[in-house]
Design a binder for these strands. Structure first.
Lengths: 129, 129
DNA sequence: TTGCTCCTCACGTCACGTGAGGTGGC
DNA sequence: TTGCTCCTCACGTCACGTGAGGTGGC
């Protein structure tokens, strides 16, 4: 790598790598969360000294992690879904079994029913005023 | 109180008081949860020695606590709603302001939208198999 | 020198879960 | 004596939040 390719880590958005702040802004998560996912073994950005540098594939992994969270899976489960992918390659999708999908659907549908009940109750209380 | 009024704490379901196990079964919560609510100052059962004895009013308070939880309020918030009631009397309802109701409704409606998205996504993944 | 972004501990939060070890009355 | 229900610590869990104290390059 030539001297001309050198980058300033904290402002490295010009090549195909991202700072922790870049990803935090793009996905609206905290720096703490990103470091936490790394401590949980879900992300492995390379380092420039102490500063983390995320590749495009790291960025996509983060997208998958957040998708998994949105579907209500725990970080442990998401970690497994990422690992059971091609292995050591960049996964393009979360790998979940039919059973996982169906069980999670049951959980979420139940939660929605509970939410509906709660919303109805609160609306009734609002009328009651 | 006469000797004939003596009760066996662990099986005291015969008068108007309940053991912790009675309430746990009725409301499907753990003993740990009931003790936790007490530690947080939300319930104050009297004692027969070390054993807790819950009155009818304690039982109703518990019902309100669980209603509050179901509507998504934190224990701190619920505690305040119970306290802002008649004060030192048994509350019949959770006392929430219009603002509290409206803000909580916004939170819950948002959560339901997120759940709907997640459910749709999981169903799409199920088709995709 | 000031500002901004980054870093590593490390304790705190929320609502309990989960043993460990012990008591009291049929 | 065995079973059941109750008790009090006290550490663990989940997904981070929140300082404290410090570094590095415009």
């Amino acid at each position: 790598m030539s001297a001309a390719a050198e980058m300033h880590p904290a402002t490295a958005a010009s090549d195909n790598s991202y700072t922790i702040g870049d990803l935090a802004r793009e996905y609206d998560v905290t720096l703490r969360a990103l470091r936490f996912y790394e401590a949980r073994g879900m992300l492995r950005p390379r380092r420039s000294g102490l500063t983390r540098l995320y590749s495009e594939s790291d960025r996509k992994r983060l997208g998958l992690i957040l998708k998994g969270k949105q579907m209500g899976f725990t970080l442990q489960e998401i970690r497994a879904m990422l690992a059971s992918e091609g292995n050591s390659n960049q996964p393009a999708e979360l790998k979940l079994t039919k059973t996982q999908i169906d069980e999670q659907l049951e959980v979420l549908v139940r939660q929605r029913a509970d939410l509906d009940t709660a919303i109805a109750e609160l609306r009734a209380k609002r009328e009651h005023l």
